[in-house]
Amino acid sequence: MMVQTAPVPPSVSAALTTTEVRVTSGFQGARIVLYGAVFDPSHQPSDIVVLVRGPEQPIRIAHKVRIAGLWINSRPVVFHGAPGFYKAASTRPLDQIAGFGVLRRLGAGIDHLAINAPAEQRVETRYGVKDVVVNRLGADYLDWRQAVVRLKAKMGLYEEDDHGVIFVDQNLFKADITLPTDAPIGRYQAQILLFQNGQLVSQRVRELDVKKVGLQRSLYLFAHFHPWTYGLVSVSIALAAGWAASAAFRRS
């Protein structure tokens, strides 16, 4: 007679090949591999979504408008909630893995990132309806938001890869994460999500530090903690170099 045990819930586990990216003077970006495994005794069809987010940075963006024949910048709009780096990798296109609501709640996919411009919004009562969010950018709001994503994608900072997660063995998967040279310094988070039948069933979070080391770090700290001394040192180097070159040329 078979013993009926409580079903073991499916779970996911993952690890990064590197948890610390060292930015040295020869930094050319980095390639990190994420490996993971799905534990599911019932062998349901599984989908994996990996979301990597860099440190959040407010974004100032302006629209070019033509005034009196000249192209000039409009008033800049500040968007909040935008990660400095974002990559969504998955085993299939996201909209096939889960529904709109689920993806939106998780911020899975560039379209579902919670980027907004709070300074442009106000809450008011319209037609007797309370708390209506009105955006000063009006119908153009979507254009603005798309521009943020488009410009970030062009810099290699935002990416969505429908087939970025590959099952290398029955339950073993892998994803490549490429950080460009422009990737911001700071703490990154990789969220590994396991979906079955359109529902999130298990998740893991792994952290990744991108930091300046060695001379890069010393110079950065020097410039930020002793800015005046740093300025004097850098200008002294400049003046001394000018003098040295002149002296060298005089002799020759």
């Binding site: 003077s25 930020h224 005046w228 300025g231």
Partner: peptide, 21 residues
């Protein structure tokens, strides 16, 4: 140069050195 370094922390000593060599 000193003002920019002191107030804005925008002087890149590596960039400046490469250029001035």
């Amino acid at each position: 140069s000193v003002l920019q370094a002191g107030r804005n922390q925008t002087v890149d000593i590596v960039l400046a050195t490469l250029l001035l060599i």
